[in-house]
């Protein structure tokens, strides 16, 4: 598959599609509660400075995701 990167590396301002969420039950549940599932399209609003959190837009709702978690979310640019 071409262009598979993690959310931590996704460029600012782009729409990306969630491909896979690596990580444990807890992280998967927490993300799913906020409406982040494989297959969903989200927008990377800003990628924090100094390796800070990634700010994404999920259906018009802002969510901050720590870089550690973000590096477990595989996405694909659309």
């Amino acid at each position: 598959m071409s262009g598979k990167i993690t959310l931590a590396d996704a460029p600012e301002g782009r729409m990306v599609k969630v491909i896979n969420i690596r990580g444990g039950w807890g992280v998967r549940q927490r993300l799913s509660q906020l409406g982040i599932y494989p297959g969903d399209i989200i927008r990377v609003v800003r990628s924090g400075a100094f390796r800070g959190p990634v700010y994404i837009d999920v259906n018009g709702n802002g969510i901050a995701i720590g870089r550690g978690v973000a590096s477990h979310i595989e996405v694909e640019e659309v």
Binding site: G26, V27, Y55, R67, G68
Partner: peptide, 12 residues
């Protein structure tokens, strides 16, 4: 221990 990191909703 490395904590899993932050997942936080930023409200309007």
């Amino acid at each position: 221990f490395s904590s899993p990191g932050m997942i936080l909703e930023i409200p309007r």
